[in-house]
Each structure stands twice: as structure tokens, then as C-alpha cells.
Design a protein around this nucleic acid. Structure first.
Length: 848
DNA sequence: ATAGGGTTAG
């Protein structure tokens, strides 16, 4: 029973003195006591007061010195002095000093270390310093677990993210007969919010009301926060409205709830209401307001928020600074973001990440990379967010080496198990055309979330692996991940990229009857996919359906619809879309103008195309290209060349498309000198490498003008093998002149060169058809049949008398069919569709 | 009691 004897040591004599009395000392009495202490014998009381005030001022070293002085003089030190010292260490979060005090307490024997007040203080101290092992151990050894220690330990669990433990503590506390007070309730509510346990939260709400804490702003604000975190904004608002004296925190909590639930408008509204009530915003207010502004892309509001922070003298800490940077980079004002970045005194990873992701988002990969280097020089390590941005940059630029470096960094630093990072890695490999690597990373990631599934789905859809995409779509559902709009959209895209139009339409119908409704991107995907698969008329009708469904078309959908109109020369619909764009003030978009130029040109109205072209002030290269190709289509080579001059005057660099347009314009107009001059200019002055199309235009031009020698010379000197198209056009020209011998030679050569390439046979038959030699066409087709070659879709046409004969090989829905409509449009409106006929087993569309 | 960053679809 020796140890019992220790615990029952007779208590030393202490002055009967309670810390609560300290509050009654007035400042004058305090100074008097301090003077006494200097001159005369220092009383216990004044030691206590001196230590207490030093602790409150944060002068911990001085306070500890006094404690040592007391110990030297063999003065008895009571629990209240240790308590004050611990409180001082607590507010200063001075863990080391606190541990020293703890050591002295233990050294002084069980009377001190087992004092209820001291024990509780120690639990609170270690809990607040987030030393959970010690805090928990001391708490478990407590003989009396009072409301204070319970609050400390529940708060500790809360801060460490052990929300379940916090709530268990809340229950256990009640079970042991200690009633949770208005200090514990906020922590319990915070845990409910973190766990999204609305049921438990409501229980706490009921308890709070029963106990009469409902009027406490702290508790009410926590309730607002809890309901907000659980997504029940109506209840959050009800609690908020019932608070009688709302302080800034209450307002902030409500604003934050709206922001976190994506209701930015309401958050902004709240902010203005708060200002009307004359509540001064804090950094928390402004940074939440800026989040809302950033999410809405509300330029004016965000700038106002920044101004309020400056005018209100709110210091630029890293969180407020980050919010400002986030806002500026989200609205694209990267330079302003840079400026603010430079003014933040203490930056952390988040600050750097924001600027880096801003750069990545606006395509400034170089700046993002140099930022990463500077970040390393600042002794900061990359985290998963940095890597996600870096990997996304590698994906955008298809930089496989950079991407691999990023992947390796993730492996070395254990970041690859983060789903977000895994998604970025998968996306990076997919965009760098290494779907095999993407698949490997995808398979080895344990916890797949919807974004990761969608990333893999999109990767397969992009390359038309529709089977694989559909498989993933079912597989994710088997693993209880419910597809969202993006998943559906990707599967539809996969079908369309694979040319499976019916399957795509089918899935779209399924989607419309499911819980998930098509959004703008679904409609756009479908319209553009139909247009690309030669279903122009359907594309146009889907575009109309989309408006019926109440979805406002954007630039991409309008451009796709216009391209569909171009394909079938649907002037009527094209004009309607033009009108729509004008009414909605989106005509200024260069992309739409470019499509309009193309559409009007292909519908035969070159003047209208020029009108649209002239209307755009800041012309881009694609716009010039569209107009040049429009002139080429209409055989107006001189105008095209004039435009080329204008383009060079404006300091633009022509690209391959520009040159193709110009050369084909020359070719149509048989401007042989201009064409050759252009070709030489392109090679020697612009240092451009001619493509097969460029050679094709020039060789076609030469042969159409009868210069077969020069054409052959070019064929022999070109760095790549001539394709079927080039030889085909040459053969066609041979028939026209006639250069029968050369033509026959080339024909045989073409078939000898690549006897198994069906494209060559098609080219040949097209060439024969163009010169009206039907027997030859028939012969070539027979040859194909003998060789068992599948027909390659394609078409050709020829005008004989008043009739236009159009030959369509294979499927009538082949994209090439669009050319027929364009040709018809160019020929004028007299041409009338008269029906299909069959010739050589293929369809022939007759017009007259 | 309240605040900041990242990944997927046309």
C-alpha cells in the first residue's frame, strides 16, 4: 500500500487563495503589490499576480524565471500558479515551455500532478497543441472528466479530423453524466458537418434547443455551418435568420455555405446585405466573396472585393492573397494575379499552385515551368496539386517527356495514389497517344472515382475505341460508380468518332429517357459528330431540336451546324443561323464568321461570304484562309492572290492551308505562271515544306495546261511518292489532251505500283469518268472485283449536256457526297435532283 | 464558430 500512502501525502499549507479572486485586483493595486515585492518581502499573492500578468502578456520566459525564483526560495507553489503558466503556454502555443512546466509539476509530486485543476489544464494544453497521444493518454488517466477536459478532447479529435471519435466522445460525455455545454456543441456540429451526418447534426440541434443554447451565436453559427456542409441550405438559412445579434462570423458562415454549395449568386447577395447592415467585412468575408466572384466569372464584383480588402486595410495574408490570385487567374487577368502574388509576404504551396495553374489554364506552359523552378528555390516541395497542374500542362502540349518526369516525381513522393493525380497521369498519357500506359495507370489505381473513370472513357472515345468506351461505361456501373453527363457524352463521342452514327443516336435517346439530361456539350457532340459523318441534314435538325429543348447554342455548336449547312449547301438554314448569331450578338466571334464565309462560299454566294469577311475587324489567319478557299472554289484566282498580298501586308505568316487554297485557285483558273511563282515563293522564301496536296495542285495545274513534261519532272523530283490522287488527275488530263500513251503508261504504273490499294482503282475510274470513258470505268471496276477489293467510298461527277452525272461508290452517306451539293450550288439553281440510278453496281445520282 | 489551390466531355 506504499503508493496509496504517496497519494494521500498530507497537503502542504497553502494560503487559502483562489485564482478567481485575482480578477478583483485593480491595476493600481497590482502596481502597488509589485512595488512591495521589489522593496520588501514578496508575498505569494504578488508572485501569483506577477506571473499571471506576464503570462497574459506572452512574456513566458520572465514568468518561468519568477517560478524558478520561487522554487529557489523554497516558496510553495500552488496549482493556480502552474495553471496560469500553462494557460500562458497554451495561448502562445509554446509546447516546449509547457513541457518544462509539466516536468516541474511531476517533480513536485502527486499532490500537484493529480490535482483536478492541473490535470485538466494539462489535457487542454496538450490538446490545443495538437499533441494527440499525450492529450489522449492524460485524458484517459483523469479521475474526474469534467466539461472542460471533455471539450478539449472532443476539440482535439475534431481538429485532427477524427470526426467519428469526436462524436463518440460527445455521446460518452453525456452517458457519463457530464452535460455538453455551448463550448462542446460547436465541435460536435463541426464533426457532423465534416462527416455529412445530417441525422446526428439534427440530433445535436435538438439537444441545443432543449438546453437553451440556441441563442448563443457560436452555437448558431456552427449550426449554419453544419447545415451548409450537409447541403441543406434552407435549414442553414432558417437558423441564420433566427439569430438575433448576428456577428461577422455568422454572416461569413452563411456566405461560405452558399459558396461551398455552388450558389455563388446567393453568396454575393448575402455579402451586399451584410454591407447594408453595416457589418465590417473581414478577410474571411472578402476571400469567400472573391471565391463566389471567381466561380461566376464576375469581373466587376471580384475587383470590388479586392478594392474592399485594400480600402478596409485588411492585411494580405496567404489565404486572402490566394483568393485574390484565384479570382484574377480565373477571369484571365494573369498579370494582375502576378502583381498580387509579388505582394504576399509569406507564400505557401497553395499560393504558388494558384499562379501555376493560372498559367497552365491560359496556355503559358513555359511560365508555369519556370514558376515551379522558383518554387523549388524557395524550398517548397511540390504537392499533388502542383503535379496535377504540371501533368495537365504536359497533356496540353503532348509533351511525353515532361509528363513522364511528372509521373516519376509522383511515384517518388507517393502522390500517385491520389485519384486526382492519377486522373491527370491517365489523361497525360492518353493525350500523348500512349493509351497503353494510361490503361496501366488506370488499372493500378485502387480507388477509382468518377473523374478517373471519365478520364479513361474520354481517352478511348477520343480515338474512336467505342467498344472499349462502352465496356468502361458498364464496368463503372458494376463497381457502383454512377455515370454522369460527362460519362454519357464520352460514350456518344466514342461512337461518333468510330462512325457508328446509329449507336450514338440510340444512346442519346436512352440518355434523354434517363435521369441525366443532355447538356450543351451533349448536343454539340452530337451535332458535330453527325456533320463529320456526312449526316448533315440530321445535324441541322438536331441543332433545331436543341433550341426547342431550351439549350442555347454556343460557338462550337454553331460552327458545327454551319459546316453541316456547307456540306449540303443548305443556304436556307445557313442564313437562319446567320440571323440567329446576329440577333444574339455573337457574330463578332471570328470562328463563327470563318464558318459563315465557308458556308456562303459553298452555297454559291461569294458576295455574301465577302460581306461577312469584310465585317470582321480583327481578322485571323483561318478567316483569311476561308476567304481564299472561297475564291478558289469559285475560280476567282486573282482575288485570292490579292487577299494573299493583304495578308502578308498585315504581317501574318501563311500556313499550309493558305497555300493549298491559293494553288488550287490558280489550278482552277489555269494561271500557270502565278501558280509556279507561288510554289517557288513558298519553298525558297517562306521555307515551307510542300505537302502532298501542294504537289497535287501544281501537277494538276501543269497537266491541265498541257505541260506534261514539267508535271512529270515535278513528280520525279518530289521527295515523296505521288499518291493516287496526283496520278489520277494526271491521267484525267492525259485523256483530255489527249496524251493517250502517257495516260495508259501512268494507269498501268499506278496499278503496278500498288496493286492492292483500292484507292488507286477509284482514282483511275474517277479519271476515266471525268473524261467520259465509261468503258474504261467499267474495266477498272471489273479489275477491282476480280481482285476481290472492297470498294472505297468516293464520288465523281461530270456534266454531260444538260445533265450532271454523279457517281457514288459505296455508301451514299460518304462525306464526299457533300462536294456534290457544293458543286450544284456553284452551278446555279437550275440543277434539279431527278433520282438515283445504278451503274456498275454503284449508285448514280442524276440531276438535270 | 467562419476563409484559399488541382483532375474528366464538344
Amino acid at each position: 500500500m506504499a503508493f496509496l500512502a504517496v497519494t494521500t501525502t498530507p497537503s502542504p499549507k497553502f494560503p487559502s487563495f483562489k485564482p478567481s479572486r485575482a480578477k478583483k485586483f485593480t491595476p493600481t493595486r497590482l502596481t502597488k503589490l509589485q512595488e512591495d515585492a521589489k522593496n520588501h518581502e514578496i508575498s505569494y499573492e504578488s508572485y501569483f499576480l506577477r506571473i499571471s500578468s506576464l503570462c497574459k502578456e506572452g512574456q513566458l520566459r520572465q514568468a518561468v524565471k519568477l517560478l524558478s525564483a520561487m522554487e529557489l526560495k523554497n516558496l510553495q507553489v500552488g496549482p493556480e500558479i502552474y495553471g496560469e503558466l500553462l494557460q500562458g503556454c497554451l495561448t502562445e502555443r509554446a509546447l516546449f515551455t509547457g513541457q518544462q512546466i509539466h516536468a516541474r509539476i511531476v517533480k513536485n509530486g502527486d499532490f500537484f500532478s493529480r490535482d483536478e485543476y492541473i490535470e485538466t489544464k494539462l489535457v487542454i494544453f496538450y490538446s490545443k497543441c495538437d499533441v494527440s497521444e499525450v492529450g489522449n493518454r492524460l485524458f484517459r488517466r483523469l479521475r474526474v472528466q469534467n466539461a472542460f477536459s471533455w471539450a478539449a478532447i472532443i476539440g482535439l479529435h475534431c481538429r485532427m479530423g477524427y470526426s467519428e471519435e469526436a462524436l463518440l466522445g460527445f455521446l460518452e460525455m453525456q452517458k457519463s453524466g457530464v452535460l455538453p455545454d455551448n463550448f462542446v456543441a460547436p465541435n460536435a456540429l463541426k464533426a457532423c458537418g465534416a462527416l455529412r451526418w445530417i441525422g446526428f447534426g439534427k440530433g445535436v440541434h435538438g439537444y441545443v434547443v432543449k438546453m437553451g443554447f440556441g441563442g448563443c451565436v457560436f452555437v448558431a453559427s456552427s449550426l449554419v455551418d453544419m447545415y451548409g456542409k450537409c447541403g441543406v441550405l434552407e435549414d442553414a438559412r432558417k437558423v441564420f435568420d433566427a439569430i438575433l445579434d448576428r456577428n461577422v462570423v455568422a454572416w461569413n458562415t452563411m456566405i461560405v455555405s452558399y459558396v461551398q454549395n455552388g450558389i455563388s449568386e446567393a453568396a454575393i447577395d448575402m455579402f451586399y446585405n451584410m454591407r447594408v447592415e453595416g457589418i465590417e467585412p473581414t478577410r474571411v468575408t472578402v476571400s469567400s466573396f472573391l471565391s463566389a466572384s471567381a466561380n461566376m466569372g464576375a469581373l466587376q464584383e471580384g475587383k470590388q472585393g479586392h478594392a474592399i480588402a485594400v480600402v478596409g486595410g485588411l492585411g494580405l495574408d496567404k489565404i486572402l492573397g490566394s483568393s485574390i490570385i484565384n479570382f484574377y487567374s480565373k477571369v484571365g487577368l494573369i498579370q494582375d494575379a502576378e502583381l498580387v502574388f509579388g505582394r504576399i509576404p509569406k507564400k505557401d504551396v497553395v499560393t504558388w499552385n494558384l499562379l501555376i495553374s493560372g498559367y497552365v489554364q491560359f496556355g503559358q506552359v513555359d511560365k508555369a515551368l519556370s514558376m515551379c523552378q522558383l518554387m523549388m528555390l524557395d524550398n517548397l516541395r511540390f504537392d499533388s496539386v502542383t503535379l496535377a497542374s504540371l501533368l495537365s500542362a504536359s497533356a496540353d502540349t503532348s509533351d511525353l517527356n515532361l509528363g513522364k518526369e511528372g509521373h516519376c516525381y509522383c511515384i517518388r513522393n507517393n502522390l500517385e495514389s491520389d485519384v486526382v493525380v492519377a486522373s491527370s497521369i491517365v489523361d497525360m498519357y492518353a493525350k500523348c497517344e500512349r493509351i497503353d500506359y494510361a490503361r496501366q495507370v488506370f488499372n493500378s489505381t485502387i480507388n477509382k472515382d468518377i473523374v478517373l473513370w471519365n478520364t479513361m472513357l474520354a481517352a478511348n472515345a477520343e480515338i474512336g475505341e467505342s467498344r472499349e468506351a462502352l465496356k468502361l461505361f458498364y464496368q463503372m456501373q458494376l463497381e457502383s460508380v454512377i455515370p454522369n453527363v460527362i460519362s454519357w457524352n464520352s460514350v456518344i463521342l466514342g461512337f461518333l468518332r468510330n462512325g457508328l452514327v446509329n449507336e450514338a443516336k440510340d444512346l442519346f435517346l436512352q440518355m434523354r429517357s434517363s435521369d441525366i439530361q443532355p447538356n450543351l456539350i451533349t448536343w454539340t457532340t452530337l451535332i458535330s459528330g453527325l456533320a463529320h459523318n456526312a449526316c448533315a441534314n440530321e445535324a441541322i435538325s438536331v441543332f433545331a431540336q436543341m433550341q426547342v429543348a431550351g439549350i442555347k447554342p454556343n460557338t462550337v455548336s454553331i460552327v458545327s451546324a454551319l459546316s453541316a449547312c456547307s456540306d449540303v449547301a443548305a443556304l436556307h438554314y445557313g442564313r437562319a443561323i446567320h440571323g440567329y448569331a446576329t440577333r444574339h450578338d455573337i457574330l463578332l466571334s471570328v470562328h463563327i464568321a470563318t464558318s459563315l464565309v465557308d458556308m456562303y462560299a459553298k452555297c454559291g454566294i461569294i458576295d455574301q461570304a465577302k460581306w461577312v469577311f469584310d465585317m470582321i475587324l480583327n481578322k485571323t489567319l483561318p478567316l483569311y484562309n476561308a476567304m481564299i478557299c472561297a475564291y478558289a472554289l469559285h475560280g476567282q484566282a486573282l482575288e485570292a492572290l490579292e487577299l494573299f498580298k493583304q495578308l502578308e501586308v498585315e504581317g501574318m505568316e501563311p500556313d499550309n492551308i493558305t497555300l493549298t487554297g491559293l494553288l488550287s485557285a490558280c489550278c482552277h483558273a489555269k494561271l500557270v505562271n502565278e501558280g509556279l511563282e507561288l510554289f517557288n515563293h513558298m519553298v525558297s522564301k517562306l521555307h515551307m515544306k510542300p505537302t502532298m496536296e501542294h504537289y497535287s495542285c501544281v501537277i494538276n495545274l501543269l497537266s491541265r495546261c498541257g505541260d506534261f513534261d514539267e508535271a512529270m519532272r515535278l513528280i520525279l523530283t518530289m521527295p515523296c511518292k505521288p499518291d493516287a490522287h496526283i496520278l489520277g488527275s494526271l491521267i484525267a488530263a492525259c485523256r483530255d489532251f489527249p496524251e493517250i500513251e502517257l495516260g495508259d503508261y501512268l494507269s498501268k504504273h499506278l496499278l503496278k505500283l500498288e496493286p492492292d490499294n483500292p484507292g488507286n482503282y477509284v482514282a483511275l475510274s474517277n479519271a476515266h469518268a471525268a473524261s467520259g470513258r465509261w468503258d474504261e470505268v467499267s474495266y477498272v471496276r471489273d479489275l477491282m472485283k476480280q481482285k476481290g477489293l472492297r470498294k472505297v467510298p468516293g464520288c465523281s461527277w461530270v456534266q454531260i449536256g444538260g445533265e450532271l452525272h454523279v457517281f457514288v461508290a459505296g455508301d451514299k452517306s460518304h462525306p464526299k457526297i457533300g462536294d456534290i451539293y457544293t458543286t450544284l450550288a456553284l452551278l446555279g439553281t437550275e440543277m434539279r435532283f431527278t433520282g438515283y440510278e445504278h451503274m456498275f453496281g454503284d449508285s448514280e445520282i442524276l440531276f438535270s
